[in-house]
Simulated scan of single mutants.
Amino acid sequence: MSDIQIISQNRTTILFDADIVSNPDVLLFDPEHWRAQQSLTGESTGRGTTYFFHYQQHEMVLRHYRRGGVIGKILQDQYLYTGLTQTRAWQEFYLLAKMQQSQLPTPVPVAAKIERRGVGYRADLITLRIPASQDVFQLLCQQELSAQQWGKMGQTIRQLHDQQIFHHDLNIHNLMLDQQGKIWIIDFDKCQRKNGHVWKQQNLERLLRSLCKEKQRQPCFYWQEDDWEYLCEGYNGYK
């Protein structure tokens, strides 16, 4: 079990796994610090920029929380502060930690920073990078996946659903495949444990919509309806 600790100073709170990092400060969450140290190993641009960096013997992923949609154009990375345990970084960090206890194929949380500003806050999250992996979307732009791989995708989603884990944004960009053929699920912002079962089918339908959208948008995208059947077979057949 991880050793989660909390330090607070000057309206900034950092929670961290002391088994991975010890006595972290705000520089841990500064990509320019890692660039200056020549430890920045890559960047990925989406709603914001995700940074990859090397720290001690670990490869890590740094993500700054940013809003999407129309409100994101105004507030960008500001959120209303209603208590530390209600912040998005706190909730995602602890959800990831609980999923690790259940041995689910999800990222390992390393540290989170919540910085209060007036009535709001800004936040960052660091996780361990999934080794030798690529997001499934990028793979599908290059090649077909086998029926077995689609089946494993369905099995992995079922593992989360059996633990009542609701993924707020289950889309093809948030599924990873490593070199050992293992499927991982990432990006658990706004995700939670959820009772009931109706939402599980809605979760799957969200993933299907993302596949259909990318099929229309990309000049080359190796996905077809039969692949979805393989995924569903893996989901329904998992025990």
Rank of each mutant, 00 (worst) to 15 (best):
H54W: 01
R217P: 00
L128K: 13
Q134L: 06
Q218W: 02
A111K: 05
R117K: 11
Y238M: 11
L204T: 09
D77Q: 08
P31K: 05
S210G: 12
R11D: 15
F29R: 03
Y65M: 09
S210M: 09
R209K: 10
Q142M: 10
H173D: 08
T50K: 01
L62K: 01
L204H: 03
Q216D: 14
R117L: 10
Q101E: 15
E92A: 04
M1V: 12
T45W: 08
Q149H: 02
Q56C: 07
M176K: 05
Y230W: 15
T87G: 11
Y121L: 06
Q142D: 14
G48S: 14
I20S: 07
K213Q: 12
K152Q: 15
G72K: 01
D124E: 14
G237K: 04
T82C: 14
Q138R: 09
Y94E: 10
Q149K: 01
I6G: 00
G46I: 08
G234Q: 07
I172V: 14
L139S: 05
R66D: 06
G72T: 02
Q101A: 14
D124A: 13
T82K: 02
G237V: 11
L175Q: 08
D187M: 06
G42A: 05
Q202N: 12
V198S: 08
D30A: 05
E92Q: 04
F221Y: 12
Y55V: 05
Q149G: 01
L231T: 14
L75I: 04
G69F: 04
P105D: 10
Q164C: 09
D3Y: 03
Q224Y: 01
Q101W: 01
I6V: 15
V110P: 10
F16D: 11
M99D: 12
R66Y: 14
D187W: 01
D162I: 08
H58W: 13
G154L: 08
A89P: 10
V108K: 06
S39L: 06
G69E: 12
A111G: 12
H64P: 07
F52A: 06
H33V: 06
W34Q: 03
Y79P: 11
R35C: 07
M176L: 15
W223H: 02
A97E: 15
I172M: 05
L40C: 02
Q76P: 00
V21N: 08
E32H: 05
L204M: 12
N23P: 00
N174D: 12
Y79D: 11
L80C: 09
E43M: 12
Y65A: 15
N195L: 03
Q201V: 06
L104M: 09
R122D: 09
R88F: 07
N236G: 15
Q91F: 02
Y65Q: 07
Y94C: 09
P219K: 10
A147Y: 03
Q5H: 10
D17A: 06
I7Q: 10
R35G: 01
L40S: 03
D162Q: 15
T45G: 00
N171G: 10
Q9I: 10
S102G: 00
G120D: 05
D30I: 04
V70N: 04
D227Q: 03
W150I: 13
I14S: 10
W150F: 10
L128T: 08
F52W: 03
R116C: 07
L140E: 06
Q148L: 13
L104G: 06
R47V: 08
V26D: 13
P31F: 06
F188C: 04
C141H: 00
V70D: 02
V136D: 06
K73I: 05
G120A: 07
L128S: 05
L75T: 11
E225C: 00
